[in-house]
Design a protein around this nucleic acid. Structure first.
Length: 479
DNA sequence: TGAAATGTTGGGGCG
DNA sequence: ACGCCCCAACATTTC
């Protein structure tokens, strides 16, 4: 009985708290595999930043598995049965994924298998089908979803350790480089610079969690809004790719909070942020169209205003609004953006620019190392006002006020928009209001060293409110 | 997990 | 002492 159990790694690129691996390793020889499946992903093939992260994740995982991770590329519906035939594997285990295309693919694979197939919960605290309202419908509002649905449900399972021993069956696959996950011509290019901001491995995911819990959890509730402070966890890419599990984050944070006497509100708030991730998965599972269709029907007729040139300025961080440009440049440089800033730039795109949220969704999908179908879709719908429990459309962020409120001393702006760094803490938020002399002293020629604002905040705010009024009226007439 | 417009209140300067 | 105005500081409402 030397036939292996295949353990199919997907978005759970770790050895600890990996239920599928844990079960398989306790039963015998395992064959660990990874499949880059662009065939079935369709529109939602991994974006560029996610590929870079995956490349490095696979190197780490392969090392941890003594170089025996079997790597494949192509249609998993064909590759899995083929591999089973070649290796005479007796079973295949995996941790469940929840993207619509993965659900349908995995279901088909499972249906056609002649060997045992077991799936496990590796990446959610509460799986989408467990949480229902009293009326047996999915939740559409976060607070009752989280409070009544999740917190009153059974507690999340405790994390598992690494398997005591892993007996690995070798099978030749591709090399990691064969997957071509890095962008072409990577000599000091975008992908390489981006990874200099990160340490990509299971071990460093845990280090990040530990560092955050020690330094950032205290005052998390307030401090998380300030992009220049270290109160955000920056765990999202590790959670997305599975270097850490939400279960580990949930329980370790509770443990540290008690040990370090962290205020309850800070721990609760961190847990609730994990809850938002769960909520996104809940929505994507029950409303799989949210990746492309607004959840609120009346938004189908929304009068968007496509504009290539302002969209380019937004993507490049050249809008003339320092807080927006800082955030967009952080995204490009690091593959990450602070959460508060994601709301600010999202509101700016969708409301001030009046550009369809699909454009933001696509750009983030390509640029974020934590790009996650559930979180990305649900969050863009949230900021656009067309999603579940969404920010009302009329809630238009004013980037200037947000900038003064959450980056008061301009530290974040100075980091990412260095051409403004000589301006005072007060002036740096609004260079377009400054007189010639002040600008000159800071070595800035507006329109040359730094752009003039691409749009007027007040006028575009009113334009957005008018646009909203058109679909609101339509909706009322329908009823 | 807003912002702006509008309304209200109360202190202080001033005739 | 008093009314009047100004305006900051809140509070409420509206989008």
């Amino acid at each position: 009985m030397n036939e292996p159990i295949i353990v199919w790694f997907r978005q759970d690129l770790r050895l600890a708290d990996n239920p599928a691996l844990h079960a398989a390793a306790s039963e015998g020889k395992i064959l660990p595999i990874y499949i880059l499946d662009d065939t079935n992903a369709g529109t939602w093939k991994m974006g560029a930043a996610n590929r870079v992260w995956t490349h490095h994740s696979l190197i780490d995982l392969n090392t941890q598995l003594n170089g025996k991770l079997c790597i494949l590329k192509g249609d998993a519906k064909k590759l899995v049965p083929q591999l089973i035939k070649e290796t005479k594997a007796k079973a295949i285990y995996w941790n469940r994924c929840y993207e619509p295309w993965r659900i349908s693919r995995d279901k088909k694979i499972k249906e056609n298998l002649e060997i045992e197939c077991k799936s496990f919960n590796g990446s959610l605290l509460w799986e989408p089908w467990h949480i229902k309202t009293q009326a047996d419908t999915p939740y559409k509002v976060f607070t009752p979803y989280y409070r009544k649905g999740c917190l009153n449900h059974t507690a999340p399972r405790e994390p598992l350790g690494k398997p005591d021993k892993i007996d690995i069956y070798s099978h030749q696959g591709l090399s990691i480089n064969d997957l071509n996950l890095l962008p072409p011509k990577e000599e000091g290019g975008w992908g390489q610079k981006m990874t200099s901001y990160w340490d990509i491995s299971e071990k460093s995911g845990h280090q990040r969690l530990t560092d955050f819990l020690e330094d950032g959890l205290n005052d998390y509730k307030e401090g998380r809004n300030i992009p220049s402070q270290n109160n955000v966890s920056r765990l999202s890419p590790y959670l997305h790719h599975g270097q850490i599990s939400p279960h580990q984050a949930w329980y370790q944070s509770a443990f540290i909070a008690e040990h370090n006497k962290i205020p309850q509100k800070d721990l609760d708030h961190f847990h609730s942020e994990l809850g938002w991730r769960e909520f996104s998965y809940h929505l994507l599972y029950h409303f799989p169209d949210i990746t492309h269709e607004p959840l609120q029907e009346n938004f189908k007729d929304f009068p968007w205003h496509p504009d290539k040139s302002t969209l380019e300025a937004w993507k490049k961080g050249q809008t003339g609004y320092p807080i927006i440009d800082a955030a967009m440049r952080e995204l490009w440089a690091t593959g990450y953006m602070h959460g508060r800033c994601r709301m600010i730039v999202g509101s700016f795109l969708v409301k001030n620019m009046l550009v369809h949220w699909h454009e933001g969704e696509q750009w983030f999908w390509d640029c974020l190392v934590d790009a996650d179908l559930a979180n990305n879709s649900a969050s863009w719908q949230w900021i656009a006002g067309c999603g579940a429990d969404a920010a009302p459309y009329f809630r238009v962020f004013n980037p200037l006020l947000q900038s003064k409120k959450f980056d008061g001393n301009g530290d974040y702006i100075r980091q990412w928009v260095p051409e403004l760094s000589k301006l005072s803490d007060k002036d740096i938020h609004e260079p377009w209001t400054l007189d010639e002399n002040t600008l000159k002293k800071a070595d800035i020629v507006l329109g040359n060293d730094y752009p003039k604002p691409i749009l007027d905040l007040s006028a575009t705010r009113n334009r957005a409110l008018d646009a909203y009024a058109t679909i609101k009226k339509k909706n009322n007439n329908d009823e």
